[in-house]
Amino acid sequence: MNVDASNKVLIRRHSAFNTLQQPLFYYSPESGDIDPEPNIRLEASGWLIDFEKVIAGASRVIFFRHIGRHYISLGDRVFEIGEKKSSVKHRRGILVSELKIIDERGGEHAVKYVTPWWRLIFDDGSHPDLQFPLEAFSKQYANI
């Protein structure tokens, strides 16, 4: 992990409803601590996704930017995404979806979660980040 421990990153909890009214937190990548920030009008540098029905892997995923670099935190592990760094992939399944990070050594770190049936039915493709945030943010980071 290449995140300066003295810096905290402002992240917003992701939600399909009233997204910009969701709580903000200061996230410390080094310790994994998350502390509330009461001013929800501040601009966040990342997204906290902790509402998926995880069946294997970390129950908390954080996508964030810090000093021009892109990171994904799976539980207590932080991965820098980019060339000669870690890479990210996502596979959406009918019953189970998977977010997978391949670190610079080739190790695989995955989060498997239940694909909500209602998202499959109501997903019209206009706002994939609201229906499938792990997939949408993974695709953004995969193209870096």
Rank of each mutant, 00 (worst) to 15 (best):
F25H: 02
V88G: 12
F64G: 00
S126Y: 05
G32A: 00
V96T: 14
Y27D: 00
V61A: 08
I67S: 15
R77N: 10
Y26Q: 09
A44F: 10
R105P: 00
I49K: 07
H90E: 11
E43F: 14
P116K: 05
D103K: 02
I81T: 07
G32C: 02
S97G: 04
A110W: 05
A58L: 01
Y27N: 02
F122R: 09
Y113T: 01
I55Q: 11
K85Y: 05
R77S: 10
I101Y: 07
G106Q: 05
L24Y: 07
Y26W: 12
R119C: 11
S87R: 10
S97T: 05
D76F: 06
F63P: 10
R41S: 15
G46M: 07
S28P: 02
E98M: 11
R91F: 12
F79R: 05
L42G: 13
S59A: 11
A56S: 15
Q22Y: 02
L42F: 14
L48Y: 07
K85G: 09
V114I: 15
S28F: 00
T115E: 02
E37L: 04
V96L: 13
S45I: 06
G46N: 06
H66P: 01
K89S: 14
E52V: 02
R105E: 12
S86V: 05
E43C: 11
I34M: 14
Y26H: 06
F25Y: 12
N39G: 11
W47S: 12
R91E: 15
L74M: 09
H127V: 10
L24T: 02
V54E: 04
Y71S: 08
P128D: 09
P38S: 14
R41N: 15
P38T: 11
G46T: 02
G46I: 01
E83S: 11
I49R: 06
S86R: 00
F25P: 00
P116R: 11
S45A: 14
D103R: 00
E43Q: 15
I67E: 15
D35M: 10
R65H: 15
A56R: 15
L24D: 04
G68Y: 03
S73W: 05
V54T: 10
E98Q: 14
A56F: 13
L99E: 07
A58H: 01
F25T: 00
W118Q: 04
L120G: 09
S97K: 04
R105S: 10
S86Y: 01
G93A: 05
Y27E: 00
G82C: 09
P116E: 08
E80H: 02
V78D: 01
F64N: 07
R77Y: 00
R119V: 11
R119W: 13
S87Y: 04
H66N: 14
E98H: 06
D76S: 13
L120K: 09
L95K: 14
